[in-house]
Design a protein around this nucleic acid. Structure first.
Lengths: 244, 244
DNA sequence: TCTAGTGACGAACACTGTTCGTGTCAAGTA
DNA sequence: TACTTGACACGAACAGTGTTCGTCACTAGA
């Protein structure tokens, strides 16, 4: 048959099982699965991210993913660490540890908040991926080189980082609620949220909740970003008191 | 037939549907469902808590629960608030706001950590139940009466509380992992965890992670409680700097 | 050539939260 | 008294989830 023309002109006989179709989808890999998962999370939020959803996006079935990731938790951990990889920090300068620690906080927060509700993926475990360790080395090293004893520096950066991810996590909750309410504009959501909270606060019995009811405006005055930075600065102030 | 003896001596014919059985289970109520849910969470962790599990414990089917709670998220919110109800605080004394704020933090943490991984139930939403509001009034009021302007007091107690629940949340993660590993002794789990982390840290390339690899002992020296209190004290120190 | 390991993946499993439809009961109204 | 309405209870079913098991195809090494 060789040389008698392209075999595409002759239909294959029905009893012949065709060779496996030429691959029209990418070769699976862990990296590809993580990237796809992150893209889905960015577009649809964490609740939109399922093994089936990822597989669908890759033109395969969910079972195929398990050759590359142990389970969904592991996938979430990797996605989280992938996001941490976007954090870009200036070279450490211990003489300016206050400013640089603040930058670390703002940058980490910015990156986490830029990925839908990814902070909820920290659910999956205690971050120990390559980027998490890179960030730890940065903050830990900065404090040590600024003069803090290692043991205290360990506590300090740990708590600092916990605060950041805790706040990002809370932001995630709001994000998920915004999505559940079919709203897409964060400002819109924020106003609605504030309205509901303040109505609620005003409805409380003044006898039992004198401070809350008297200062509703103060309670709802600041948005998430202001709250985050306030807490950052509290921690930094506390650290400065302990710095040798 | 009346008067011819107890009808218990005569078996009912098989075509007759017996009257609804006398209730051998408690009357359902929201309170009962919440209490049952909490008992299950205490015994089996949050992952053990499903609508079916609660229903099973109450001798009914999961659909019955929906007459009393809107959905699982609502149940989790109520369970969380129920737990917050166990927090017992001394009467506010603004002159001792530092000590009392610390007590607030320790007490809240103690209660949360005493209920398996309940902190993960904060997942379900921003706490607005009666006990959450009671605690907010306490901390907010304390700071205001100590001299802090309401707007700043709002930020302060909010951040303080976020830090506490963030840490409790992290504790929840460890709890869930401990359960997944079939371990029941927290000390055992902690030692194992520390061992694995320190092995990991020691395996990092010293060139890229000089501080981490050189100070492994410092990094693993403190347990969760010490870390929590360290962060508490940082925040309190920061607040003291801002108190008029 | 044969074997073992790896990757791909369909079918199936166990489980979850929730809805729908139906029955029972109690309270209120005509 | 009879009828209507609302609340509660709950079985069956639905839609969805993460994961495992078994099978096939392919590749590399003995």
């Amino acid at each position: 048959m060789a040389g008698m023309g392209s075999d595409e002109d002759v239909p294959a006989p029905p009893w012949r099982t065709p060779r496996k179709q030429a691959q029209s989808r990418p070769q699976l890999s862990q990296e590809l699965i993580v990237r796809t998962g992150l893209a889905i999370l960015d577009a649809e939020g964490l609740d939109g991210l399922s093994m089936r959803r990822v597989a669908q996006e890759l033109g395969t079935g969910p079972a195929s993913l398990y050759a590359h990731v142990a389970n969904k938790d592991e996938l979430l951990e990797m996605i989280y660490d992938e996001v941490l990889g976007e954090i870009s920090l200036p070279p450490p300068d211990p003489a300016r540890w206050r400013e640089q620690l603040r930058t670390y906080g703002l940058e980490m927060h910015r990156v986490l908040m830029g990925h839908a509700d990814v902070a909820r993926a920290a659910l999956a475990g205690i971050p120990t991926g390559p980027n998490a360790v890179r960030l730890a080395e940065y903050a830990f090293g900065l404090l040590i080189d600024a003069g803090m004893p290692p043991r205290e520096a360990s506590l300090a950066f740990d708590r600092f980082t916990l605060y950041i991810s805790g706040d990002a996590y809370e932001g995630s909750l709001h994000y998920a609620k915004m999505r559940a309410a079919r709203m897409s504009d964060p400002e819109d959501y924020f106003h609605r949220y504030v309205e509901r909270i303040s109505d609620y606060l005003r409805s409380l019995p003044p006898g039992r909740f004198p401070h809350m009811t008297r200062h509703v405006d103060a309670l709802i005055a600041d948005d998430g970003e202001a709250r985050f930075e306030y807490g950052l600065d509290l921690l930094i102030t506390g650290l400065a008191e302990r710095m040798p």
